[in-house]
């Protein structure tokens, strides 16, 4: 099939403002991913097209983009999912994720995103000595299950950059950071919940969430992001984990 690929382009060394690049690709297989199409443009047509990618199968979090208006990983989005079955032609539009400064083409500055991430103390805090026998701390399978969903996060930023509250005010820590906080707050071995709740309970924490569910829809790991945020909100209100 044939795909008309429309890509939002911007090279700060050349362009005064962003523009749309139009590329016609023939012999596209519906099972090709959007990343495959972008690679074809970059390798065969225009080497200046710039994007991040690495694993190519949805586990590294490099290539979150706005594809036909919705955030997704380019490598996990197949053409087949964007077209009507049997279509021989399609238009696909790709833009950088919103709310973070564009560095070049589809590459955005991830630093603000990682700063929010780091602000929630995304690491295990336990100052009690580990078991004397030199072995693992124990945790029941039920306790382990409580934070299983939020351990899947690959920090792709698809959720945070689909959130209207984050677009409105970039100081909001955003869903991804809250997902990370959740992963530790609900870990029975962790002792840092008081410190973390302080951060996520702050003016730019969970209360900015308006339960729009964009984040949950955007998450390529199918994490129930909005639910995780709700659980953190509840922990704040009830003081109980």
């Amino acid at each position: 099939m044939q795909v008309q690929l429309r890509i939002r382009r911007f090279n700060p060394e050349k362009d005064e403002k962003p523009w749309w690049g139009e590329y016609t690709l023939d012999n596209v297989n519906p099972n090709d991913s959007v990343l495959d199409l972008l690679h074809r443009v970059k390798w065969e047509i225009d080497g200046t097209l710039t994007l991040r990618r690495s694993c190519a199968h949805g586990v590294c979090g490099s290539d979150a983009m706005r594809i036909n208006g919705a955030n997704a990983l380019a490598c996990k989005t197949l053409v087949a999912r964007l077209i009507k079955e049997g279509a021989t032609q399609a238009r696909i539009q790709v833009e950088p994720i919103l709310g973070l400064p564009v560095v070049k083409d589809l590459v955005v500055d991830m630093e603000p995103f990682f700063e929010h991430y780091k602000s929630v103390k995304p690491y295990f805090i336990n100052n009690s000595p580990p078991p004397e026998n030199g072995r693992e701390r124990l945790q029941s399978p039920e306790d382990r299950a409580r934070y299983d969903d939020t351990t899947k996060c690959i920090l792709c930023a698809a959720c945070t950059t689909s959130c209207p509250s984050f677009w409105a005010d970039g100081r909001y820590v955003g869903p991804a950071a809250i997902v990370q906080a959740h992963r530790f707050i609900f870990d029975s071995r962790d002792e840092g919940y008081a410190e973390r709740l302080k951060v996520v309970g702050d003016t730019f924490g969970v209360w900015r969430c308006r339960t729009v569910f964009n984040c949950t829809n955007a998450c390529p790991r199918e994490i129930e992001v909005t639910k995780a945020i709700a659980e953190v909100k509840r922990a704040l209100t009830t003081g109980k984990v």
């Binding site: 295990f124 072995r135 693992e136 701390r137 945790q139 029941s140 306790d143 382990r144």
Partner: peptide
Amino acid sequence: IELEHMGLPFDRLPNGKI
């Protein structure tokens, strides 16, 4: 064991071990 002490969420057995 050290990774577990760093917080790594290994799957658990009913007795709480890795």
